[in-house]
Design a protein around this nucleic acid. Structure first.
Lengths: 132, 132
DNA sequence: ATACGTGTTCAAGTTAACTTTAAGTCAAGC
DNA sequence: GCTTGACTTAAAGTTAACTTGAACACGTAT
């Protein structure tokens, strides 16, 4: 079992060493062993980091990932906590989706804009916006 | 022509007075007249603010809205500048849309998760993620 | 011995778009 | 004359998720 330096872990995970130290400082990663003061990581840490990355990609905040991982005193199984969060987050993500679609509509309207001055254009854009 | 106080403008526009002062400080809004030191607004300012709000809803940053409004030395017509920005922004918004869809997929997978511990769940989630 | 590369900690900086706070001004009502 | 409420400014604070900087330690190659 080869131990990894922090920069090796960073490289393999595709993040910066400073991010790893930050995760450790907020208890998202457990403190690793040290050799001459330097961190030495078991390759298992890479799975942990992958989890963090997937959770972030799903829209969970670091704070939410923390409670997901660290609430050991809570006897709810992990899958249940994950599902609870996934449920909440799906509501947020659906709202986000609608917002992005709204953004797109405004922009597409903007592409059809033929106004020559600000006053005119303001009315044109607002008309397009409120009529949709 | 009734002039409005800053709090009346704020109320009608649905923003805070501090936001209006901020917009003025960064030249997004022109400095209004003063009466006894207090700002007095022509109701026209409400159209300006609507424009800012629509542009923000379209995903433009304040900096982008600034260049859109304030680049008067540039002889490109407003509609053209707006279209250039809309074009760029549509690319970003499409990327955002794909990201949000990715978020949703991860979350829906999460709802099917039946893992009982972290190790198992990490693998389960990452498997679902990488197989999609 | 010394320079180098990589590591360490802790505090402060980054970004956007405002908000909050502190300290002071002003007109009107009592 | 004094209180009240709305206003003014400039500077500092907010949020998330890190990054950067300063000052120092360590082991290895020269």
């Amino acid at each position: 079992m080869e131990e990894l330096t922090i920069s090796e872990v960073a490289k393999r995970a595709g993040i910066r060493a400073s991010a790893i130290r930050y995760y450790e400082s907020i208890q998202l990663l457990p403190p690793p062993q040290r050799s001459a003061g330097r961190r030495r990581y078991n390759p298992d840490v890479l799975r942990r980091i992958s989890f963090i990355q997937v959770a972030q990609a799903a829209g969970l905040t670091i704070a939410e990932i923390q409670t997901l991982i660290n609430e050991l005193d809570d006897n709810m199984p992990l899958s249940e906590r994950w599902q609870t969060l996934a449920h909440q987050k799906l509501v947020e993500v659906d709202a986000l989706m609608r917002k992005v679609q709204g953004m797109k509509m405004i922009l597409v309207n903007g592409l059809n804009c033929r106004c020559s001055n600000l006053e005119e254009c303001i009315d044109c854009i607002i008309r397009a916006e409120t009529s949709s």
